[in-house]
């Protein structure tokens, strides 16, 4: 019985690691543009966090009004600059990726679609 269970476990493992090679779903490495966009977005959110921290400091009396306004404006501009980059990279990439999709659908053998979509949010 234990041997049987062990064999079963081994079989399951083999299936799990072989499946990505033979399954119908094809994988593509996450594109650099996607990573860049995710990074930019994360950085912008971090700046938002900093802005809310600066606001909290100001409310608690840690910052003078002048310092607060100066820091807040700097951070807002930084966030806006990232937003600009984000929209730039996003638009050009969407176009490029659409081209790619068309090509891929023509050559069905080659890798198409996505890396596993459900894996991972950005909660951590």
């Amino acid at each position: 019985m234990p041997i049987l269970l062990g064999t079963l476990l081994a079989l399951v493992s083999v299936v799990v690691i072989v499946y990505p090679f033979i399954g119908s779903k094809k994988y593509r490495l996450v594109s650099d543009s996607f990573v860049t966009r995710e990074k930019l977005r994360a950085e912008r959110l971090r700046i938002y966090r900093k802005i809310s921290d600066v606001e909290a400091d100001f409310t608690s009396g840690d910052l003078t009004r002048a310092d607060y306004q100066q820091q807040r404006d700097q951070l807002r501009i930084a966030a806006a600059e990232i937003l600009k980059q984000e929209s730039g990279s996003s638009i050009s990439n969407v176009k490029r990726d659409e081209e790619l999709e068309k090509q891929i659908s023509r050559l069905r053998e080659q890798s198409a679609t996505s890396n596993e979509a459900p894996e991972g949010g950005d909660t951590l």
């Binding site: 399951v12 799990v16 994988y27 490495l29 890396n115 596993e116």
Partner: peptide, 13 residues
């Protein structure tokens, strides 16, 4: 990519 996915699933296994 398939190898990366497979190796990651091996870690889950």
């Amino acid at each position: 990519a398939a190898l990366v996915v497979s190796a990651r699933r091996a870690l889950y296994m």
